[in-house]
């Protein structure tokens, strides 16, 4: 244990010198340290890309674009915004689909039902894990965990009809009462 008052005077003097020498210590939140590691190690498949709208100095906010080249959503382009909290990786990143998409696991507000984004998040997971999860959403949409119930039932009962509806939605058309975003490349 330190002896506080033997060091107090010295401390003040040292602090004054430091401040005179060009300011404050600056910090990096643990979230920033970890996300820098994640981003430097992120290997994206050809069907995905990443953009940093605030430039290279803000790694906490970025956009991942998924461009499936097979499956129901081939030819489409879907942006997901990532907001990494300062408590990352203790807390998961917040991910939202920026396009209105006809998908059993994505609702009309852009909420995404992906277990590792909520109940199954663990600090050992990374941005790579989430990106992999997103690609899986498009290669294997899952009607058993519905967030858009209509789309889920459509996929489970009449896959052919679901495929047509996905196409119509990606062209910016209506499915039921809802108009979807144009997502074709």
């Amino acid at each position: 244990m330190i002896k506080l008052f033997s060091v107090k005077e010295k401390q003040e003097k040292a602090a004054m010198e430091r401040e005179a020498n060009g300011g404050h210590a600056s910090r990096q939140s643990s979230g920033e340290v970890r996300v820098a590691k994640d981003i430097s190690e992120l290997a994206l498949p050809r069907s995905m890309s990443i953009a940093f709208p605030n430039g290279r100095d803000d790694l906490l906010n970025f956009i991942i674009t998924v461009k499936p080249d097979e499956g129901y959503y081939r030819g489409g382009m879907f942006e997901f915004s990532f907001a990494v909290p300062t408590m990352y990786p203790h807390e998961p990143p917040k991910v939202r689909c920026e396009r209105k998409v006809y998908h059993p696991n994505i609702d009309l507000e852009g909420n995404v039902c992906l277990n590792i984004l909520r109940e199954d998040w663990k600090p050992v997971l990374s941005i790579s894990s989430v990106v992999f999860g997103l690609s899986l959403l498009f290669s294997e949409p899952n009607p058993d965990d519905p967030l858009n119930k209509d789309a889920a039932e459509d996929l489970a009962r009449t896959p052919k009809n679901f495929e047509l509806n996905v196409r119509r939605a990606m062209q910016g058309g209506y499915v039921g009462q809802h108009r979807f975003s144009q997502c074709l490349r």
Binding site: A25, S26, R27, Q28, E32, I39, E41, A43
Partner: peptide, 16 residues
């Protein structure tokens, strides 16, 4: 290696 100093990235491998 990727390197950062005082919260600023000096060098980042990969996508950026």
């Amino acid at each position: 290696p990727s390197v950062s100093y005082r919260g600023k990235n000096l060098y980042l491998r990969g996508v950026l």
